[in-house]
Computed example of a mutant assay.
Amino acid sequence: MKDALINNTPAKTILVIGELLADLISENNIESLAFASNFIINQGGSPANLSANLKWLGNHTELVSCVGEDGLGDYLINEMEMAGLSPKYLQRIPKHQTSIVLVGKSTGTPDFIAYRHADMHIARIDDQLIESSALLHTTAFALSKEPAKSHILEAFAKAYRSGKYVSIDWNYSPAIWNDDNGREVFDQICGFKPLLKISMDDMERFLDRNLTVQESINALNGLNALVICLTCGKDGVWYKAKNGPWIHKPALTVPSVVNVTGAGDAFWAGFLSHFIQEKSIEKCIDHALSIARKKIESAGALYKTEHIAKI
């Protein structure tokens, strides 16, 4: 494997760095994995989902991730190619198995267990790849383990110094971070003035207590972020631009909830897709909510549905 990833992508590229893994999702809705019996394999990983959604929405995006040299790795690369993504930056390593996550299908927050191997071994990202991108995105999941953490933070620091946008889905889970509360990495990311997406569930896990929306807003108020989106599931989203007020947008009506897994990735893909086009923050949020609704109404990945015109 090369020591660094080298690239020559177009200037408006959204560079997504993080986990590509296999989701083993229960066939039926369950409250806990203790009740699961049958699982279906799906391509998973928040960054991979986001990148596929961005591509589906007509954006130029590249995914940097790491899988093992095994059958699951072959399956995931094939899935990404079916989504229209190039496998150019999907690294293969022979000594680590492709990571998997067991997921309990649910209409609420799903129960999950992660078995991590290859996903945390992302190599250093080459300066040319960073320079040729307009925006870099990652997740708390990707930042929880070395060596991926150091390489992603290094890439974000370079991007920020070069005037690039950076984006973070702070999908924090103590089951992933173990004894690390994530605060040091979170503060470091916030130093790059990110576009921050965080859910109410993420907030409660991150701060380790039950919270009201107002308590979450109070905790987020002092952050040095360009935009903050606090997603609240069926209750919509609270958002603010830097130095602006908090604004609430209700979730769009969904006649039939099919599957909420991946709705957050769909929301953020909708947001970033409009943000990179320099649309207003309100229009970015409206687009995000419409794409989230589309995902909730869909049984599988968005790229496996019909293509939609960009709003």
Rank of each mutant, 00 (worst) to 15 (best):
K145Y: 11
E146P: 04
E146S: 11
E146M: 08
E146V: 00
P147Q: 09
A148Y: 11
K149V: 00
S150W: 10
H151V: 07
I152L: 09
I152W: 11
I152G: 04
L153I: 14
A155L: 07
A155G: 05
A157Q: 15
K158S: 11
A159I: 11
A159L: 12
R161D: 13
R161I: 01
S162E: 14
S162V: 00
G163V: 09
G163K: 12
G163A: 10
Y165L: 13
Y165H: 08
Y165A: 08
Y165W: 12
V166I: 15
I168S: 02
I168E: 02
D169P: 07
D169H: 03
D169T: 05
W170V: 03
W170S: 02
N171R: 08
Y172G: 04
Y172N: 04
P174R: 05
A175N: 12
A175L: 14
I176T: 09
W177T: 01
W177E: 01
W177Q: 02
N178A: 12
N178R: 15
D179P: 02
D180G: 05
D180I: 09
N181T: 02
G182N: 02
E184M: 08
E184Y: 08
E184R: 07
V185R: 01
V185T: 12
V185I: 14
F186N: 00
D187C: 01
Q188T: 15
Q188M: 06
I189M: 11
I189F: 10
I189W: 02
C190T: 15
C190I: 15
C190L: 11
G191Y: 05
K193V: 03
P194M: 01
P194S: 05
P194D: 09
P194Y: 06
L195Q: 03
L195M: 10
I198E: 02
I198D: 00
S199Y: 06
S199R: 11
S199I: 04
M200N: 06
M200K: 15
D201C: 03
D201Y: 09
M203L: 11
M203S: 13
E204P: 00
E204R: 13
R205F: 00
R205N: 13
R205Q: 13
F206W: 10
F206R: 10
F206A: 05
L207R: 11
L207E: 05
D208W: 00
R209M: 12
R209V: 03
R209W: 04
N210Q: 15
N210W: 09
L211P: 01
L211K: 10
T212D: 13
T212A: 10
V213P: 03
V213I: 13
Q214W: 06
E215T: 02
E215W: 04
S216T: 08
S216L: 10
A219D: 09
A219Y: 14
L220V: 07
L220Q: 06
N221L: 12
N221G: 09
N221F: 03
G222E: 09
G222S: 15
A225H: 04
A225N: 05
A225F: 04
V227Q: 02
I228V: 13
I228T: 11
C229P: 03
C229Q: 07
L230M: 03
L230H: 05
T231S: 14
T231E: 07
T231G: 06
T231H: 05
C232Y: 10
C232V: 03
C232P: 03
K234N: 09
K234G: 02
D235A: 12
D235Y: 12
V237D: 01
V237G: 01
V237K: 08
W238L: 01
W238D: 01
